[in-house]
């Protein structure tokens, strides 16, 4: 037996060993979630891989077995055949159409159930009341507005552990995507629209977040921190923002929104009333403020498909029906 045949397998084994050694002790947030959403999403991944293995493992075994056994040099297996010796094998065909189909059927049920269960818009089941955080993606930083607490922060979103956080998100920048992999999946954020995400941390800790959609030169500087703390620590943090007494007026917001990247964490107090809604509406409204927003919404834009102007939902537009 030619030892050279074994070289590729040895190389693969060596690579696998090196990988395992490297990963031991490494941090893989997606595989080590710190919140129920991430954990559920990971379960979906694992079930999928296991189901696929039912097909993939036989494929690998057969590939290498056939390649070895029926290689031209192995004269022992030579079968004398005319061109048509191998009639279509309907048994084999049935198996390899139906078995994958059955697996896909399981995966279909999984897709249906998990898409509903893990809908980003679905509020999380919890005894604690949700904390609302409004998120604005800017060039190239994240602004977090806490309407109930009356504070705001840049590049740091702090919240109590074991409390569901209800995010309302928009952008005043190109399309972005809000992602904290330790806690769960991402959601795209777009200017002029509002979307939602619900996440929760199962314990205290610092989790890194980023933007997962390119939005311009400084996009790599959009890393932020999501910090889960105890309730008292959270209250103290809110108080510290108020004490810093930097009001987030519309003018202060406009200054903040100017392009900058790798911004340090900063805290604001007293964000303007309805600042979040104003930011959204400014994109959607024509520049000449002469328009009467209310009238126009009812007449010319009666049923922005799926997009209610007040709490602009970012659901997929349904086929348009014109208003009567």
């Amino acid at each position: 037996m030619n030892w050279r045949y074994l070289l590729p397998y040895a190389a693969i084994l060596a690579l696998a060993a090196a990988t395992a050694w490297y990963l031991h002790g490494a941090s893989l947030p997606v595989l080590d979630p710190k919140g129920p959403v991430g954990a559920a999403e990971l379960r979906v991944m694992i079930i999928t891989v296991l189901l696929c293995a039912i097909v993939v493992v036989p494929v690998f075994i057969l590939l290498f077995y056939f390649a070895w056994k029926y290689r031209a040099g192995n004269t022992a297996t030579h079968v004398d055949h005319s061109p048509d010796w191998d009639h279509d094998n309907w048994v084999a065909e049935t198996i390899w159409w139906l078995v994958p189909a059955a697996i896909i059927a399981f995966l279909a049920v999984l897709a249906w159930q998990s898409s509903y269960a893990l809908d980003p818009y679905k509020p999380l089941a919890s005894a604690a009341p949700p904390l609302t955080v409004q998120v604005v993606a800017l060039d190239w930083k994240w602004l977090f507005i806490y309407p109930e607490q009356g504070i705001a922060s840049v590049n740091l979103v702090e919240f109590p552990a074991d409390v569901p956080v209800h995010f309302e998100l928009t952008a005043d920048a190109p399309m972005n995507s809000f992602w904290v992999p330790s806690l769960g999946g991402q959601i795209m954020v777009m200017p002029g629209m509002e979307t939602q995400l619900n996440l929760m941390a199962s314990g205290v800790g610092d989790f890194s977040g980023s933007s997962a959609n390119i939005s311009g030169d400084g996009f790599s500087g959009m890393a932020f921190t999501a910090r889960a703390v105890t309730q008292s620590e959270f209250d103290a943090w809110v108080q510290s923002a108020k004490d810093a007494a930097r009001p987030l007026t519309l003018d202060a917001y406009d200054a903040l929104a100017k392009p900058s990247s790798y911004d340090p964490v900063s805290l604001y107090a007293a964000p303007d009333e309805n600042l979040f809604e104003t930011i959204i509406d400014r994109v959607m409204m024509p520049a000449d403020g002469a328009m009467d927003m209310n009238n126009d919404m009812n007449m010319d834009m009666p049923s922005m498909p799926g997009m209610d102007m007040h709490s602009m939902d970012m659901r997929m537009p349904m086929p348009v029906t014109t208003a009567p």
């Binding site: 409204m285 024509p286 000449d288 328009m291 126009d296 010319d300 834009m301 009666p302 049923s303 922005m304 498909p305 537009p317 086929p319 348009v320 014109t322």
Partner: peptide, 9 residues
């Protein structure tokens, strides 16, 4: 079809 109601004032 998608845009015909987007009259933007």
């Amino acid at each position: 079809a998608v845009l015909h109601t987007s009259t933007f004032g």
